[in-house]
Structures are given as C-alpha cells and as structure tokens.
Amino acid sequence: MLLLIVLLAGCWSAAGAAGPPPATSGTSTAATGSDWDWSGFSGLDDAPVTDRSGRGGKSTGLPVAPKIGETAVPDFDAPARKTYALFRGMPSFDVIPSQRDPGMHPCSNCHQWVLSDPRPRKLKQPHDNFELQHGLHGKGKFWCFTCHELSGKGGLKTLEGEKLEFADAYVLCSQCHVDQARDWVYGAHGKRVSGWQDKRQVLNCTACHYQHRPALKTRTPEPGPRVRMGLGRPPHWVEKDKRPEADRVTRAAWKTEAVPDEKTGLETRPEGRRDSLVENGDDEKS
C-alpha cells in the first residue's frame, strides 16, 4: 500500500514536470531546419499503435510508455552537442538528438522512489511493452541494465559503465556495430539532414532503428508510375497484377471509368490519373 502511494506521488510529480504533452510523433511538425515535412517520418513503417488509453496517467497512475517499435522523433530545436570521437581523425558533424518522451523520462521520476529489480524476468507494467528483439538481447544474453543507467537522471551506459545521455545513443550502438558506425561517421550510413554544403548534421541511430527491435519493418509503398495521361497501365503491369480479375485495371477500363478527383479536379483512377485531355483539357490550357 505504501509502495502504491509512493508510486502515484512519483507519477504526479512527473506529470507536473513534463511540460508538453507526450509527443505523438504521427502529428508532430517540428521545425526541421529543412523543408521536408517530418510528420511522415515518425518511423520507417506504419508501426502498430498500442492502445494506451487503459493505462494513461490518470486512470492507473502509471507513466505513458513509448509505443512499441516506434522510432524517436528528431528534435531539430535541440542545441548542437559535441560528438563523441568514435574514430581517430573522424570528420566533425552534429548529431540531432531525439525528442524526449516526457512520460518515461527521466527514469528518476519513478526510480528515485522505486527500486529497480535487476533480475532478468518477464517485464510488467509499465515496462511490459519493451520486448527486446535485438540480436543477442532477444536471446536473453543482455538485459535492460546492459545499456540503461538508473542512477542520477538516468540514461544510458556503455559496456564499460561510462554514463551516456540518451542523445548519445550512437556511442552505445557503435560498441558492437563498428562497421555501421564507421559508415555512419563518414557518411555512408545514416541520414544527413542538413544541406550538402552546410555543416553536416546527421540523425541519431534511434531515429531510424527502434532500439529494442532495430530491424526495420515493412510498409505499404507509395503508388507506382503510370504510363501517361490518356492511357492506362501497360499490359505488362496488368499481367503481373495478382489481384482478382474483376479488380484489375485494364487499359479499356481506364478509358471508361474516370472519376474526377475532388482535390485536383483531374480525373483519376484508384491509382490516380486522368483519362483524356480532350474532354477535360480546359483547366490545363493556358
């Protein structure tokens, strides 16, 4: 009973200190320093969204955990940090830190009250959604505290015990993934978000790889090419199409079933293209 009270108190203090609401990355429009709209960049894939309504702060008093498999959102407003020298003579560049998840960070919100249990076990709330599928980790060789540090504000630590900020997660990754780290440092891996001429700014590893399950997931691709207006997909496409016969878009179908798109005023198909210029060409001309 005492434990529960302590726990609730910790959460309330956390909620008060958190400031902005949890960044639900799907709608975040952080000023990016580049024109690309990062709102679509919440992850490499349409990650399954865990329904967290049942255990949000107020009903259960437990902190909001990050969604499973969701990558961190780059925080372009954060001040530049000094980059760790991973390799001798490596070029200088900035690493864009990730936005903090205010519900879970810092760990000391709870863990100044609650002792952590260091024994490997099946995790319970609020950690139950951290399912490790990370190479060795997933096979039980490593445990939370291989990488996580609870003392102080919390954060990360290297295998040798050196404390790290979350913003410096790449140091942790580079301990094992040396080849990737070298490529990342020199620019053959990772994502440069600054212009080609500006000071080099790159994303942290966790912007693309969800740290507890780094393998990238699959996603639905954007629509493919069209032949050109007035014509349908090439026969080639129709043949490779595996959908049922009735759903197939044939060239004949393109010529008969045009629907005007609300947004563009162009006639489009499910795959989106106008059929004929002859009847509908007025908008385009002069």
Binding site: W36, G187, K191, R192, C208
Partner: peptide, 29 residues
C-alpha cells in the same frame, strides 16, 4: 547548398548526394 528532394525524403538514408570535387564529402567516402 540544399539536398535534392529525393535525398531529403528518403527515410532510410539510402541516398547520398554531394560534391564529387570535395575529397571530404560523403559521396567521396
């Protein structure tokens, strides 16, 4: 000095654009 739109949009960092005459550029690496 900006990146091409395709580089900026690529979510996997597969695209590397740069100045071939700059020996320190990523593409030269």
């Amino acid at each position: 000095g900006r990146q091409p739109a395709c580089q900026e949009a690529c979510p996997t960092g597969a695209r590397i654009f740069g100045n071939l005459l700059d020996p320190d550029s990523e593409i030269r690496y």
